[in-house]
Structure formats: structure tokens, C-alpha cells
Amino acid sequence: MSAVTPVISEALIRTNIVRSVSDVFKTMLRRSTKLDHVSVAEGDGETPTVVRDGVFAKSSLVVGTVGFLGEINGLIYLYFEDSFAQTCAGQMLGMSEQEMTESGEEVVNDAIGELTNMTVGSFKNSLSDQGFPCKLTIPSILRGSKFSIEPISDAMRFIYTFESEGQRLVADIILKVGD
């Protein structure tokens, strides 16, 4: 396994993440998604405004994360507002709003973890087929509000904001570069 991430163009990353998000949301949730904002940062620069400021950053959030290790190393975070996370989990499991409320956070966490796993899996499978074989890590969930996720200095960060039938979803991709 190489510790050095080869140079991958933003266009390739964008193509892969847009297709992955679209496939997973369409197949598992019957929801359409549309890319509406792109932000790229290098090194330990400031967290892009899309996840730092505004209504979204102040909301109660559920963030799913899955990493990939191999010829290319990185992490992808999927940000959902709490209510949207609950809606997605309900759609995925075929449960009503009331059933979801009664089921508690654990059920939502597991569903968002799996949605993230599928999205990152689809993303990294494309990278593998494009010459960057790697493997997935186990998903984990972050919950809270007014927090930020900061990459280490030798990382590239790509943030893609999606609109899904009136709801917002953010895919935050952090790729390790260098040793």
C-alpha cells in the first residue's frame, strides 16, 4: 500500500461523487439529487464556508463517515441535518415518521452509516476501476451542532453540496497527499 496519494483531478472526483450520491439516493431512497456547490481547499486552510457558516452549520447534524485505504487514502463525510437524516432512515427502512421517532437515534445512526458506506463504496469502486485500488473502513457517525472537522496539513479537501428535493446534503472528501 502506498502512503502517497497519486494526483487525481478534481473533475474525476466530482464525476465519481456526483454519480455515487445520485445512485445511492435514487436506489435506496427514491430521491433525486443535484450538485449545486463545489469548494476545493488545500492543506490546513480554513474550513470552507458551506460547513462553517450559515443555517446548515448551526443546525443539529448527523454526519456519516467512511474511509478508504490503498493506492489512495482518504475519508468522506456525509452531512445531514438531523430531520433529513431521520427522513432518509425512515424511507430506507420503510418506517413512518412516528416509528422513527420511537426507534431513537441508534436506528438513524445505523441507516446513515449504511447510506454513507454505500456512497463511499460506490465512489471508491470507481476509483479502484480507474487504477487506484483501495478498501473501505467501517462507518462511524458524528452527531452535534456548531462543530467543524479539520483535516491535517497534508490533505486535499473537496466539498460538494447537493440539493435533494428541498433538503441539503454535503459530501466532504478529504484525501491524504504526500507521506
Partner: peptide, 27 residues
């Protein structure tokens, strides 16, 4: 039934002996 796809991965696992392979997301 897994999110682990990619041609090489699928071929490697198929060689161990599986009847079919579904890559998530799935219908």
C-alpha cells in the same frame, strides 16, 4: 451483498467461491 465492488475485488472474492455478487446500493 456488499459495497465492496471494483473489478479486482469482485474477481478475487469470486475465486473463493460465490454464486452471485450484488454491489450496494441494491434494489
Amino acid at each position: 451483498l456488499t459495497a465492496e465492488g471494483g473489478r479486482d475485488n469482485v474477481l478475487k472474492i469470486a475465486k473463493i467461491g460465490v454464486r452471485d455478487y450484488i454491489v450496494k446500493p441494491f434494489e
